[in-house]
Write a protein that binds this DNA or RNA. Sequence first.
DNA 1: TTTGCTCTTGAATGACATACAAGAAACGTG
DNA 2: CACGTTTCTTGTATGTCATTCAAGAGCAAA
Lengths: 185, 185
Amino acid sequence: MAKNKRNIDLKVKQDELENTASRLFLSLGYEGTSMNRIARELGVAPNTLYWYYASKDELLVGVLNRQMSDTLARLPTIAEKPLKEKMAWALREFEQSRELVATVHARLEQSDVIREWHDQFHRFVETAVIHTLRADGVARERAATLATVGTFLVEGLLSHPHSPRQREAILQWFADSALPSQPPS
Amino acid sequence: MAKNKRNIDLKVKQDELENTASRLFLSLGYEGTSMNRIARELGVAPNTLYWYYASKDELLVGVLNRQMSDTLARLPTIAEKPLKEKMAWALREFEQSRELVATVHARLEQSDVIREWHDQFHRFVETAVIHTLRADGVARERAATLATVGTFLVEGLLSHPHSPRQREAILQWFADSALPSQPPS
DNA sequence: TTTGCTCTTGAATGACATACAAGAAACGTG
DNA sequence: CACGTTTCTTGTATGTCATTCAAGAGCAAA
């Protein structure tokens, strides 16, 4: 009863799988989405997924990478904006994935694949943020510290409910403390 | 085959359950610890646990409350220390529970009991930190923002591996930015 | 002794991630 | 075109998990 073969190639099929998985992960959460459910949605047998991904965690990594590259594509949009707006943008960017962020952190200790992805992700973000800060004239050591702090603030805001006023206050305070000589945005 | 009755009362038994659960949660993680395993360790049938707790999440809440009250008992120790040391203390205090912190965040959306505990926890911490800051002469609005930021930094440090130098740098930077007029500790 | 409460249990249930081996379709080579 | 190999898909099974249910055992009060 196997159907399509070489006419659709691997990448295209993975795209399809990851799109569906992504949609379900975002709406039902990672734990709330069973492999069975994803397969049903796709009209395939549950174990078919295991031909493409060794585990549910690997599928999650695929979904995360897809979202990362989407976000990266939108990055140039805010390249020239001030720090505060960059952080607000990142926050908006990851807001839909809020639940997945928590899932990644929770699975760090249980899944090597997830931990590797997470570490790589942080190295990447940290490097990028440090570059930005240094371009604004921040010293190397200080830039590294600020990059970590900025990341923690974004993650904190992502995982805790808060009002727009709180968000605004936190970002403003951070921007002021990080770049005291910067003109207001 | 039922054994002990009125001679040991509810609280004592719950103490025993939570002690064992706590030890296992901390060493194997929440997901890594099955109800079966906890029961085996206690020498009881798995479903016995459900007489004391409606669900695994409620057992986790019991464990969290226990740890919280332990921590609260140690709180006076650092009441008079400067901000930076208070944060370092909190960090040390929660370090063993690192994995549980991540678990709580991941289960927020799936478990009402956990969400309620989490919200209450944050309200409590926030209130306490704001009080401390206000005693140091920080204005109300600013104190609220700083309390949230401080919390996010502690949570960030808890859930991400880092060197002692990084920790020191982050805490120092935060303390300096939060209380610019404070004498060095 | 009977009734009822508190606690414990054995045995199930249904969901889940995943493993295994067999089969169908397409391909590459003769 | 024939045929073995590779790529994909499936039915079926496994073991683990949280949780449920109904039946008790021990104890206390009536």
